[in-house]
Nucleic acid binder design. Structure first.
Lengths: 202, 202, 202, 202
DNA sequence: GATGAATGAGGATTCATTCAT
DNA sequence: TATGAATGAATCCTCATTCAT
């Protein structure tokens, strides 16, 4: 009468596997991660993994998609419902949101997309549509609203929301490549925001 | 009139191989590029490659180093010898330099460093010291000089030359990942420069 | 009625592979044997071999060790429990044991150790401790016991049990090198034993 | 007016190359020695080696043959011309000759023949005819002469001169395999000679 | 459903041999 | 002659994927 091994619900398996895969990819990158490693981390047999994901590439896509979820949508929601002034929102919730990105799973996904993206155009499209385009549109829309309200003046920045993301991206890349060289990413992002606001305020 | 099976060109080989490897890595990344592919592109036998580069990793390092050469040093020289006003220099030669980066081999190297850097700390160090640190120091020094001359005011930007590079980095990453989505990188970089100058002018 | 492509026989595999490898090494030596050849002989894929033996060298060690097993220990046991007179034991069980060696797998192992031993000091140590030292000690001890019992006289041979093995070794080497030239190894060994006994009998 | 590089006489080249090859083979064995290594040791280009030896195997044969030369013939000559009594000759020049073998190049050749001999039947034949057969015949003849002269009695040993070589062979093998375990080979060989003489003396 | 033993295509590396110079 | 750059076949090893149990 052996103890029943605790068994996991079938439902959670895919999530557990993608989580394990995310960790593995984060550590070694996609190419250098073996399916075996992922299986071990997930506490699952290799065979089982292939029941949920037909190939390693499928798994990769699932991992990337799993990270994207909700994050952006929530920001968009906040943008639309906030009662703060435009400047206050930017200096508050938006800045805070931006500053968290370089240390978040998004940074890992960026790394993965840079390495493997060129071979997965559909994944890139997915990511662009669901994350980047939405995010940029939200920022752009928010700035336009500020202009409409008379809080901001019309400027090139309204059409180039990328400038808001530029220091975030540099921070992400820096963190990936130069693990030894410290960089105050919070300050970097905050300074850019300062500059931007000074530039566009009416 | 058959081609000779051999051509002896000891002098040129390393460069030829490095160039072929650069193209191959640019196309598929390091991991997904086979030594065979590089050899074929270089019009050379696999064996010969190992005469010049002991391993595929050695070749990788050689490729990265070959791209770095001089680019930055030349900018530094210009910075030091220019007779332009600080603003004129920034809007002229510096802007032009920055705008060329996203389309240059440097973008490829960035991609390679992001994918493979974590496994090649010495290469990262090399790159940091010879390119990044030098570049940042040059920009920082130039801004400080502007302050000394009364052209610029003291501000956080002087100590954060990264802000000058931020839109460049975003442009590089964009170019790598979103090949289909157009982005006017020239304008992005120019706008950042506009903002920066407006921000720091005395 | 096709054969199944797979057979799962985890338990037997190592032995099967080791046996196949022994045959292959016996035929071509270690260096000239390819892993592919061993796999084919074992009726197994190359990949599987690496599941059980991390490298070709590991396999080599396993082969050598697999041959050593018990052979010597059994002789030692006999030595200790025999009720025969010393001379009778030597002329009987011991002689018979010695005469079987040149045609046994031990001869192959000797060949392998001669070729590859210098590059595998740990294997040589293992072999020395578990086979050679034990064997020599057993012979030496047996001779000493004979002296103690008054059956043999004290002589240089007691401390040089190697002399008992000398004709065995020559027979082994002869068998490896001069396959065409017959040598009556049984007689060679028996004659040496004759001589030795005549020499040491009280 | 550059100094003329000293140039070697063409005549000596083959010898220089086989000498270098011998050293290399002695160190790493045949299979693990690269042609490049031999060329470097010989101070000669790889291409030149192929002018003298068509393949690596040719070189191997040349090396083995180069070591054999004269040694045995000289012993045979001595055997035939000595004025010593049979016993005195055995205890003197013959013993001394035997004792030198384990430390001589012959030991290396034995190692090479054991590893590679099976693939070079012609070489083995050559070696057998020119060294082993001659040597055995010489010893056998010498013993027979002793019998004829009434110095020795007729015995099995006369027809088994291998027994004289047995401890030599064991010493050679010991030296190859057990470099760490000391063995007094001189004493081993001398003791065997003692035993043999006691056995066959009239 | 689960497992992990088994497969086999593919990739990095070595090295005897050739041949333009 | 003499060189050593260049070749390419051969070999070890890895790992995504399959399938008997």
């Amino acid at each position: 009468m052996t103890k029943p091994r605790y068994r996991r619900r079938k439902k959670d398996r895919p999530k557990e596997i993608t989580a394990a895969a995310f960790d593995a990819f984060a550590e070694h990158g996609f190419a250098a991660t073996t399916v075996d490693d992922v299986a071990k981390r997930a506490g699952v047999s290799k065979g089982l993994m292939y029941l949920y994901f037909k190939t390693k590439e499928e798994l990769f896509k699932a991992v990337v998609k799993s990270v994207v979820v909700r994050r952006v949508d929530q920001l968009i929601l906040e943008v639309e419902t906030t009662e703060l002034s435009s400047e206050a929102f930017i200096r508050g919730p938006l800045l805070s949101f931006l500053q968290k990105i370089p240390g978040s799973p998004v940074a890992i996904v960026v790394r993965l997309l840079i390495s493997e993206g060129p071979r997965h155009p559909d994944l890139v499209d997915y990511y662009y549509e669901n994350v980047v385009a939405k995010g940029l549109a939200a920022i752009s829309g928010f700035l336009t609203r500020g202009v409409d309200r008379g809080e901001f003046r019309q400027s090139a920045v309204t059409g180039l929301p990328h400038l808001v993301l530029a220091p975030v991206m540099l921070s992400i890349i820096w963190g990936i490549i130069f693990t030894k060289q410290a960089l105050d990413t919070d300050k970097l992002i905050a300074t850019q925001i300062d500059m931007l606001l000074a530039h566009i305020k009416a």
